[in-house]
């Protein structure tokens, strides 16, 4: 059927996992492609070289996707504690990668960090892509507690097509293997432990009061069926960032990057 989601990796674009030194800690990052430099900041679920969305970005841009310390095979960083630490650390990463004014894109938690970076250094970011970013809180639309969500409940929050999403999230997981489970627990604790520093218990660290500082041309990209950060937040971001454009994508949930990756890349094209 036309329009059926397809999640397999695109093998024509090779992505490499590399390391760059920063003040706090060595940082793992995924690099690939050529063209304009684009920095992509991942969401709370992390990113890997097998991520089909990253491959799509690398097909058009020179992609750099740094992992938050604690993600992938990297150690968590105890000296990165609060929002300012995350924001400045990510600027440190961009500096260490030798980049100046790259296109800055973030998904979910990564969008929150990208928005903070653009607000704190408005003259250093001229193109900003925010894909269903976290960072705001609306009492009328409480965001589900990601940290109390069991793995089996995740797909309903993350995908428009829950069945296809479930298949993708559980592919290759050996849930009966105690060794696998222990590794999974450690990974989860490392990753979400770090994410919790800016997302737990309410993913609001005051960004709404800083959005006005953003000068970058900004594109907001949102899946219409996002149940984790519902589209009401898209309008709140649009209101907060002068001149921001909103691209709403139908039949896509919070993982719009996987469900409508092509359209997300197209929408980012508006940044020039």
């Amino acid at each position: 059927m036309d329009g059926e989601p397809r999640y397999e990796s695109e093998n024509d674009m090779s992505l490499e996992l590399k390391t760059v030194k920063t003040h706090h800690t060595p940082v793992r990052y995924i690099e690939g492609g050529s063209g304009q430099p684009l920095v992509f900041l991942h969401g709370a679920g992390g990113a890997t070289t097998a991520d089909p969305f990253l491959a799509k970005l690398a097909a058009k841009y020179h992609l750099y996707a740094p992992l938050i310390p604690g993600y992938g095979d990297s150690e968590e960083c105890h000296s990165i504690r609060d929002m300012l630490d995350f924001t400045l650390h990510t600027w440190d990463v961009i500096e260490a990668l030798g980049l100046k004014n790259p296109i800055l894109v973030g998904h979910s938690m990564g969008g929150m960090i990208a928005a903070e970076m653009a607000a704190i250094a408005p003259n250093d970011v001229t193109r900003l892509g925010l894909i269903c970013p976290a960072g705001l809180w609306l009492d009328a639309y409480p965001i589900p507690d990601l940290f109390a969500t069991m793995p089996f409940e995740m797909p309903q929050l993350l995908f428009h097509n829950v069945e296809a999403g479930t298949a993708m999230l559980t592919a290759g997981l050996q849930l009966d293997d105690p060794k696998f489970l222990q590794t999974y627990l450690v990974t989860n604790a490392r990753q979400l432990g770090m994410a919790g520093k800016i997302l737990f218990p309410v993913p609001d660290r005051g960004l709404s009061e800083r959005l006005y500082r953003i000068k970058a041309k900004t594109v907001l990209i949102w899946g219409d069926s996002d149940k984790l950060i519902p589209p009401a937040y898209a309008h709140a971001f649009k209101k907060g960032i002068a001149g921001a454009e909103l691209v709403s994508l139908p039949e896509a949930g919070h993982m719009v990057t996987l469900e409508k990756g092509e359209q997300v890349v197209q929408a980012l094209g508006r940044l020039g």
Partner: peptide
């Protein structure tokens, strides 16, 4: 509810790695 048992990050990596929790 098991989702409330252990917020990720509450236990240190060292403790989880001892594998004893189970």
């Amino acid at each position: 509810y098991p989702g409330f048992a252990d917020a990720p990050g509450y236990r240190t990596i060292k403790t989880i790695q001892t594998g004893a929790l189970s």
